[in-house]
Design a protein around this nucleic acid. Structure first.
Lengths: 248, 248
DNA sequence: TGGTCACCTTGATCGAGATCAAATTTGGAC
DNA sequence: GTCCAAATTTGATCTCGATCAAGGTGACCA
């Protein structure tokens, strides 16, 4: 499963709570100081829609805390999550008039926001910001394409294992025993949200989670807290290459 | 289904056969003239792998003629196409060491290529190129996310109809009766390639194509030449919003 | 301390698409 | 033309995940 190489490059901005990958006005080049004045924080409650697909885009920004989801819905109600936004992920579309997808808060979410127009001006004038944002977008594209393999070709069990492996790998609260060994984390998604992400029904998600539990590949404390006794064993269930991908 | 807004912005470069969206050295800003010296064309035959996943990336470039596919393969042979590259599409990853996916020629393909290092240098120094490439990448990302909805939630029939609608819409040979009315084009993909793109088996693809033919939604001349008597009727089968997406 | 509501689990059955197995078509090669 | 291998179509059957339908669980509150 795809692991963003960006993760190790995150910069903590001290009293700026957000670790912007591209737009931090404290740790970036001096041009970015102008962003400091137009920065604003906003918190959304779980379940709230932050942006509606088709809306005029008002702002760009980053997730500070919480988890948000990019989703699409068909007229008859079928829904597909097309992206998961974790802290430090970028939200918005410089250069686009209309938002292409819904952005929904999966948990309580705090965003650090910038008005779009001045941000775009900065982008046009500052190559370092543009190339940083390009790099981030390429990462997102790679992640989306990994997800296409999951949606198109993996079994329900492989989908669940892959999702758990990704969340475990990205959750900042554990950064410890990452490669293998015992890992514990809080699921930020309901069974229904997991189903929407994986292209399954919530019943199938529940059944497969139960099956992994029964086989001691995962342990549950309550519904949402998950312990993985051996990360390598979980990885075996994802269908992904277990080696680094290089066939030497 | 997602329609790239770039299409209308394509620039024809006269005796330069490629309509680079971002990197044309004839129609771009003067800095790009340096690219002219390192441009090289190469043709690949149908079925040939242009880039192997995991390879060192040697070049970036654009598709001049033909159709190429980005694909991923699991150890047990399950395959998923994650992108379709048509003429004028960009190939490669500035800023990446290793190619993330295989690039395979679906038909005979001609690429216009640039060595990666000088291209990256140009990218860092030329904001207009970086922002153009960012815009293109955002389009690809939107297209990938549309495709995630297709893979996760659409029926086999909707998948086939969507693919035909996209190819019809992107194929440069028809740019005529686009919105509705009669449309005709050559399928650049085998049934197996279609299956790999749609997350289906080739038998299911064949059956659904036959069904659409039986219901006079499409007509076949041979296996690959397709006529759509009424594009709007085909769109009805895709599951997508038939209106422009704006609910006024 | 019991009620309620949202979320989750489990069971029974169904069906779309996969799989296995032949035909049939076709586009070249000669 | 005629032959052949590859691509495609079609048929029969099976299976995984969807669907329909109850129950269980726990957090919150009166």
């Amino acid at each position: 499963m795809y692991q963003s190489p960006m993760k190790s490059e995150l910069v903590d901005c001290g009293d700026c709570p957000i670790r912007h990958k591209a737009v931090c006005s404290r740790c970036g080049p001096p041009e970015l100081a102008i962003l400091e004045n137009m920065k604003s924080y906003k918190t959304y409650e779980a379940g709230q829609t932050i942006v509606w697909a088709g809306d005029q885009t008002q702002f760009v920004g980053s997730v500070v805390t919480g988890v948000a989801a990019l989703t699409q819905t068909m007229e008859d109600g079928r829904r597909q999550m097309v992206g998961l936004l974790l802290p430090s992920d970028f939200v918005g579309r410089p250069g686009r008039e209309l938002a292409p997808f819904d952005v929904v808060a999966a948990t309580e979410v705090t965003l650090c926001r910038f008005r779009k127009a001045p941000f775009e001006k900065l982008l046009a004038e500052t190559p370092s910001v543009a190339s940083r944002l390009l790099e981030m977008t390429l990462d997102e594209l790679d992640a989306a394409r990994e997800w296409m393999l999951l949606l198109g070709r993996k079994t329900a069990r492989e989908k669940i294992a892959s999702l758990l492996a990704i969340i475990a790998g990205r959750d900042s609260s554990l950064r410890l025993a990452s490669a293998s060994g015992r890992v514990q984390f809080e699921l930020p998604l309901s069974r229904e949200a997991m189903a929407d992400y994986l292209g399954l029904t919530l019943e199938t998600v529940s059944r497969q989670v139960s099956a992994l539990k029964r086989e001691n590949i995962i342990e549950l404390q309550g519904k949402r807290r998950i312990t993985i006794p051996d990360f390598a064993v979980l990885m075996n269930e994802t269908g992904d290459d277990t080696d680094g991908g290089m066939l030497t």
